[in-house]
Write a protein that binds this DNA or RNA. Structure first.
Lengths: 250, 250
DNA sequence: AGGAGTTTGTGAACGGGAGAACAAACTGAG
DNA sequence: CTCAGTTTGTTCTCCCGTTCACAAACTCCT
């Protein structure tokens, strides 16, 4: 729902009409034409994954869609529909095998791979990102921390040495990095993105408060700290301005 | 409206660097009954605001919907429709007065107010948030940094002293804080949220990777660093042709 | 084995947002 | 004043996502 390629969106027949390997029997469902998972569903899969991991840690072996939906904070019907895009991994009358479903989701997202990641801009936020355990624990491996400021070079952050930004191309090339994280000030972000794209990166997570323009085929997702706060402020203002209820959000 | 500002609260010359001034006799709350702004539009208003600020800084006085849409990275039709929810602030055949529109959007979001904010959890991320200039420049004023760990107390972060978490209720009460930011580990997040709600906070920005449950009337927005990366990984996996259901490519 | 109870997976209705297209309104020149 | 050119505001249509509701499928108890 956020920004993929602004206007690009060329649905060049990536239709993959492969025969969705049905578990047992029931091959009559004609292989869902082009098993394409809706964007909204993709955005929720990581949430389910986390909920499932929590259940595994809690020792739960199976769970119903109702339970899992509760843990994930969504409607159970939505959860079931989301999961149905992946296949039929549940058992009617029983529920889902927690560990099995967790693996299936992880595989679908691609977390069974190892994803090397570079982080550019090692300020406060870059520090936090480099130390964030949620990356490493999900198959994302920070292979390099880059910063343009020479004063930061050789500083040790999260066990990694901060390197000059100029080493970007070399690192991306030799380590096959596909994902880059931008945590620089806004003014530098577009330049960094250009360099990243030129070096071969095709997915960018942008924390800089600016709109990046990238060629088609490159995905950009934006995380904007202050925008979220502004959205809250809007609703807060409405609340205190005592507008008629109109059903609060969940 | 008690303005007992903590001792160290001296923003480094960036108090409202946005230069937002209200025209004469502005109304505090838009209070536009019958006008309900769609959630998707609300989420884009901050983006427009930022683009407009950039235009102002660039010396542009007026702009067309096409220009502004370009700067914001959206479709011009969408932009016009979004703005139409606020009112008719443009001039046909001419465009929008950049400064005027900027003020109207800021007012609609509520950024003409001063929003005191508390941040709980002063780890790596909390540091980054406390130092993030994007908050202060948009009317958000960090009034307190709280952490449960006594080892962090009295540490100076962004000019503010880190205080014990137990002071939450007092600070929220005396400073009329409505917005809280959670940057704690996941296990602590729900407890912090409960305390925040009990103390009177009605909007929470949650950076902890967990689902918070709060009573009706309390808004929660979640920012999850690793989820965004996982979404990118999903698309990346698709691009490289390594489909999850192993190469069943036609 | 058979029936009652549970839970998944999915077809269908529903609501909201995106984008195209156009009428209304403004500017400026002749 | 009139007309051509420009740009907004709005309407209309389409599509995606959410939700409901129910048949299919499985377990358990008798």
């Amino acid at each position: 729902m956020t920004s993929r390629t602004p206007a690009g969106e060329t649905p060049t027949g990536v239709v993959r009409a492969d025969g969705l390997r049905s578990p047992v029997g029931h091959a009559d469902v004609p292989a869902r034409p082009g098993r394409e998972i809706p964007e909204a569903t993709v955005a929720r899969l990581p949430v389910y994954l986390r909920a499932l991991t929590a259940l595994v840690d809690g020792g739960t072996a199976t769970c119903s869609s109702e339970e899992l939906a509760g843990a994930a904070g969504v409607n159970s019907a939505k959860l079931r529909k989301d999961l149905s895009y992946l296949g039929s991994y549940g058992t009617r009358g029983v529920g889902y095998d927690v560990d099995y479903l967790r693996y299936q989701i992880a595989r679908e997202i691609g977390l069974t791979h190892d994803w090397p990641v570079v982080i550019v801009g090692i300020g406060n936020l870059g520090h936090a990102l480099a130390n964030y355990s949620g990356f490493r624990s999900r198959g994302f491996r920070v292979v390099a921390l880059l910063d343009a400021a020479t004063t930061r070079h050789e500083e040790l952050v999260a066990g990694l040495e901060v390197r000059p930004f100029d080493e970007l191309e070399d690192i991306v090339g030799t380590q096959s990095v596909a994902i880059g994280v931008i945590a620089t000030p806004a003014v530098a972000a577009q330049d960094v993105a250009d360099r990243m794209v030129a070096a071969g990166i095709t997915s960018i997570l942008n924390f800089a408060p600016t709109v990046l323009s990238v060629p088609d085929g490159v995905d950009v997702r934006k995380v904007d700290l202050s925008i979220e706060l502004q959205i809250l402020a809007y609703h807060e203002q409405r609340k205190t301005g005592q507008l008629p209820t109109e059903g609060a959000s969940a």
